[in-house]
């Protein structure tokens, strides 16, 4: 409870009687609060800044002791290494492409399956609706390490091991619960009366959904899809256990693979991490209005 301590200290002296003293006390506290926030912000952001800095440092500066904060030589070598290897594309760049395909297709699949289901859950009285919805959400909470064991055996049987399709299916299955919960909130916000009105005009329920509700849901669908995209893009556990070859592997295991050897090229790791994280940050910024709902898997809405 850092807050309360800090408050008690700063309000103590100037709080009592005269308004001017009280105001200056308030200002003093305000300055203290700003300072505290600034310190916390620096601490929180430092690792990210250090990563960016490392990615543009020359190798000897990366390993400099003591660490160099400002006076280092800037180079873009590491970023070049991420994309180009001797004689063609690097394994990393291939893995980035794989990530784009896997995340993109699995998100599309989750959206196509999840949005209609969310609409149906929102509009119709389904038997044991609450239980169904809770069951759906709880599948999302299963520990990936546990799920991956039977999935591994299952995929081995049907030949989906080390294939993009396998990853796409499991990512879609992990994103469907999220999509349903998130989208149900958005559908709830669209009045059902629109559909009723359309049906009075002679449209079927399906047409009413397609022509009137769906267009209104598009911003919500976009936000939901962006979150699903981020989850699939960042996913690591399934990726590392279910894929092995360079042509299939997605970026997270590929980047993790960079530290396998005896010497680690931290400049390259940093550059690859920056390239990997940048799209996520951009996407997250785009959906910042829905972050609370997004990170709680659509459970908490504001």
């Amino acid at each position: 409870m850092a807050v309360s301590v800090d408050e008690a200290v700063s309000t103590g002296p100037g709080r009592d009687h005269t308004p001017p003293a009280r105001r200056s006390g308030g200002r003093g506290r305000s300055v203290l609060e700003v300072a505290l926030l600034a310190v916390l912000a620096v601490v929180m952001l430092f690792p990210a800044l250090w990563m960016i800095e490392t990615s543009i440092k020359e190798n000897r500066d990366v390993y400099a002791i003591p660490a160099k904060f400002f006076d280092f030589t800037v180079t873009l070598e590491h970023f070049k290494d991420v994309f180009v290897a001797s004689g063609g594309r690097s394994a990393l760049s291939v893995s980035f492409l794989n990530s784009v395909v896997v995340a993109g297709v699995s998100t599309a699949l989750a959206t196509v399956l999840g949005v209609p289901a969310a609409w149906a859950y929102s509009r119709f009285s389904v038997k044991a609706k609450k239980d169904q919805l809770f069951f759906i959400l709880s599948t999302r909470f299963m520990p990936p390490v546990v799920v991956v064991i039977p999935i591994f055996l299952m995929y081995r049987q049907v030949g989906l091991i080390d294939s993009k399709l396998g990853l796409i299916l499991i990512y879609a299955a992990f994103n469907v619960p999220f999509t349903i919960w998130m989208m149900k909130g958005f559908v709830d916000e669209v009045p059902a009366e629109y559909e009723d009105a359309a049906m009075l005009d002679g449209y079927t329920r399906l047409q009413a959904f397609w022509r009137y509700t769906l267009p209104l849901l598009l911003p919500g669908i976009a936000a939901t899809a962006v979150f699903a995209l981020i989850f699939s893009w960042n996913e690591f556990v399934f990726a590392i256990f279910l894929t092995s070859s360079d042509t299939v592997r997605t970026a997270p295991p590929a980047i993790a693979g960079l530290i396998g050897g005896t010497t680690v090229d931290w400049g390259l790791v940093a550059a690859a991490s920056v390239v990997f994280a940048l799209p996520v940050l951009v996407f997250a910024y785009l959906v910042r209005k829905h972050l609370v709902a997004g990170v709680t898997l659509g459970a908490v809405r504001r």
Binding site: A41, P47, I230, W233, F236
Partner: peptide, 30 residues
């Protein structure tokens, strides 16, 4: 402020883990 503070959360655990491993390195960690 909120946006800045949210950066760590959006990163992949892989990136976070790797990077902290570098920062916490006994020899040349920052």
């Amino acid at each position: 402020l909120t946006t800045l503070f949210l950066v760590p959360m959006m990163l992949s655990p892989v990136v976070v883990g790797l990077f902290w491993r570098f920062m916490l390195d006994a020899q040349f960690g920052v």
